[in-house]
Design a protein around this nucleic acid. Sequence first.
DNA 1: GTTGTAATTTACCAATCGGTCAAATTATCA
DNA 2: TGATAATTTGACCGATTGGTAAATTACAAC
Lengths: 227, 227
Amino acid sequence: MAIPRAAKTQRRTRIQEEKGEQILEAALEVFSQHGFRGTTIDQIAEVAGMSKPNLLYYFRTKEAMHRALIDRVLDTWLDPLRAFDAEGNPETEIRSYIRRKLEMARDFPRESRLFANEVLQGAPHIEDELKGPLKTLVDEKAEVIRAWTRAGKIAKCDPYHLIFSIWSTTQHYADFDVQVRAVLGQNLSGDGRFEDAARFLEQLFVDGLMPRHREPATEGDEAVSGR
Amino acid sequence: MAIPRAAKTQRRTRIQEEKGEQILEAALEVFSQHGFRGTTIDQIAEVAGMSKPNLLYYFRTKEAMHRALIDRVLDTWLDPLRAFDAEGNPETEIRSYIRRKLEMARDFPRESRLFANEVLQGAPHIEDELKGPLKTLVDEKAEVIRAWTRAGKIAKCDPYHLIFSIWSTTQHYADFDVQVRAVLGQNLSGDGRFEDAARFLEQLFVDGLMPRHREPATEGDEAVSGR
DNA sequence: GTTGTAATTTACCAATCGGTCAAATTATCA
DNA sequence: TGATAATTTGACCGATTGGTAAATTACAAC
């Protein structure tokens, strides 16, 4: 990944491997917090514990660091969607997709914010990835969902908006972490918070919010939706 | 709002009113696109069609412009939530809250991105507003929702996560506009797109995605959720 | 060891940043 | 009309920015 400009050999040394890693880790920290334009190489250098020219020995430009980060992260970021299985039970698939996305929001909030920053500011560096691999994957999974509705396995609904809504509800906990903490006092890492959020979202996507009306008898208290 | 530092009188002239307006409009355009740190005063000046020192005649610092923008926008931004009526019919209230938020995402995407940028980067300038007025309002409306669940009018669910999910799903169309356009080819302003999104979200929040099972007979095709 | 390359740092550069200042221009109103 | 205050601008400042040049140090192979 990191190819020092002064390197005369093509082989990558152990140090190149390690330092490249170290830099990207620091870059993720800073880029995800301040966005591309708000990040300075000096900030990354300080977090990485090396000098600015040393960073630029491994990555020629600030943009190269950003690029390398995006490339590395985008793939794993789309993994949960790839795991969406056409053969599986729709309800189970949706539930576990929600959980997987929520786990990523909890465990990799910086990666989520890196993308959020980028997309929010018009995706000047990743437009191709959005229109290419991402769109392709979404189209593919949208077709899976459409097949489910055709088979009557889930309610008739727009598959694209469904995917958008799962993305937005789950990533919200990473991207708007400050707001969540301001309102809730804690984020997804807080005690029991993850389960709270997961249960709510599963219920929302499976049953919606209106009390189920299996029987005409709608007796006062027992309004919990049966699952 | 804009109080020129050289002003000897306290009265605000017509010019001050107009230019202040003009500057904030330009500032919204640029801040919402690049975030606070990514925005330069020169950029705002160019969009506003005046010189940099002239901007600084009306707003002493870049931060003052940002501050004025936030203050002006935050209030109207929370209006839809304020309209949430405890006396109303829960289903109707939720449906119209979703629609109102979706309309704002369509009609005021820059305002949405202004906040998104700010919150995403740790809300360094609006932390007080989040922990103060915003939290207060959310707590109040959460109590309304809780009352509804107690009365069995809606399913038992966490009111805070419900509010988060409405925020995230609707604002997604403004904040991640580039991504939406990359996947869908159009955004909410596109022909019929608003209705598509609105209908999907209403269905999601009211009925969820599983086909309704009023009768034990789950006959193949007719899986559209009732109502 | 010696030698050649990889890795690191110090010092630096041109461009841009937020912001100031004094002077020039324009609006206001007695 | 003239005087006074409000508005606007060009020139400029110190600090910070992304990035470079060159010299120095660490290291691996012989």
